[in-house]
Computed example of a mutant assay.
Amino acid sequence: MGLDVFTVSVMTAVVVLVAGTLFLLETFLRKDETVGRIWALSFLAGMLTSVAYMIWALDPSSIWPTALGNAAFVSSAGCMWVGCRRFNERGILIAACAVAAGAVATFAAALIDVARGDWAGAFVMFILIAAFAGLGAGESFSGEMRRNRNAIGLAVVLAAESLYYVARTIVFVTQGTESALFRTWFSTESTSLVTVVLTIVALLTTSILRAGLAGVRGVSVTSDLQRTDDGVLRADSFARLFGELVVRAGVRGETVGVVSVRVDDLPQITTAFGRGEAESVATAWRQATRRAAPTQSFVGEDGNGGLAVALLPSSPSEARHVATSVRDAVFDGVREARLSVLPIVTVGTAISSRRGITTEDLIAVARATAGETGTDVVDVDDVTPSAAR
């Protein structure tokens, strides 16, 4: 026997509300990254969607629950995309404005298209959900998320949501809501089942991603130069300082260098041993790197799983000595912490005295050079421009 719309709405609401509550509760209980807060907004919008549609199921004649639910649904998909952009350390202002505009347009479309009844504003909603979910999937396959295997699940969820709504839009326009094809595969009941599955997978993947991210990054402290609570410069602040150092060193013909210290298996440690163990590894690694860095150097974040130490070495041998000291300090720090797992730590160093060299070139070469020995130092001046990128 088939389930009625109200029963399906309640079932979907229970799953979404539980998932959203879990994610929000973790957000409130811990100091979280911007990424986690944006994804929490996505789950909060999903919860609002479920409540609005449940009210609509009780009173289908009222247009306000439909308009509110549609706008919240679009916001939920859009916030997932914005969160992915923030994870990849890209600008989010324009994306956030686009999501806000999309939500307003969806709400207005439902009120304008009130004659369609239950499907008021559905076309605009379908198009925007497909677009935002597709953008989120594309973002999940690029940048830092592309290098994080735990992001595959979220990418698949967003891609599946986008494709489903593309298909739903096509059938909605060409066949109508009363067609057998739409009723079988794209009705409210069918979509609710799809939503339940995607919500559960999205909860798991975003929780894992956020846990790994929180272990890698500290909590930011607002200041002119933003630092985490353990004293490491945030990526944008480090890039600004390092950029100024590179320019001044280039003008004077001095050698500038960067040591890349990476622990790329933190997401795997989170999955296998839990967030607590991953955070302990990250704490030991970050503290050891700061202790071992020379007094006149500065340490900053370099993406997910990476730290960079900017310095002015007098020679390649001094740069190698700093890199080796950092490597040994990290290994000692991890061992002294008596952790149940030893992370894979890689260290690489790049130096240059050429005017016009960019921070991106130096960091890229240091990353590419990173190995477990930590003794390799590459002079970027001897590397072709294409190889340095």
Rank of each mutant, 00 (worst) to 15 (best):
A337F: 10
L241K: 12
Q268M: 08
V18M: 03
R240Y: 14
S237H: 05
V259P: 04
V14M: 05
V171G: 01
F126S: 03
V5H: 02
G333S: 05
G253S: 07
G83I: 02
M11Q: 07
L48F: 09
D4R: 03
I94Y: 11
A160K: 03
A388V: 09
M54N: 10
T346D: 09
N148E: 12
L342V: 15
A122V: 00
V251D: 15
V258I: 10
G91L: 05
V219P: 04
V380R: 11
V247Q: 03
R90V: 04
F126G: 02
R168P: 00
V341R: 10
V197R: 10
A130L: 08
V383E: 08
A319G: 12
W39H: 11
T373A: 03
G257S: 07
D4Q: 03
A19D: 02
V246H: 11
L181D: 05
E336D: 14
F273Y: 13
A67C: 02
V309S: 02
T359K: 11
T174A: 08
A101E: 00
I200E: 09
A235H: 14
L241W: 08
A67N: 08
S62Y: 06
N148Q: 12
L233V: 11
D264S: 11
S75D: 02
S187W: 07
E318K: 12
T206G: 09
V383D: 09
T27G: 04
G215Q: 06
V246G: 05
V263F: 02
A239K: 12
A293S: 06
A131V: 01
I63H: 09
T199M: 13
R227Q: 15
F182Q: 05
T195V: 14
G46V: 13
V256M: 05
F186N: 03
A137R: 13
E26F: 11
V221Y: 03
V18N: 02
A388H: 11
A71K: 06
C79E: 04
T7Q: 07
A180T: 10
F273C: 14
I269A: 01
L93D: 13
V258S: 12
G212V: 04
C97P: 12
R262H: 02
A366D: 02
V16K: 01
D265Y: 10
R210A: 10
T206C: 12
A19T: 03
L111W: 00
V124M: 02
G356I: 06
A310M: 15
S223Y: 10
V309K: 10
H321C: 04
S386I: 04
Y53M: 13
S353R: 00
T12N: 13
A284L: 10
I55S: 06
W39C: 06
D4K: 07
R85K: 15
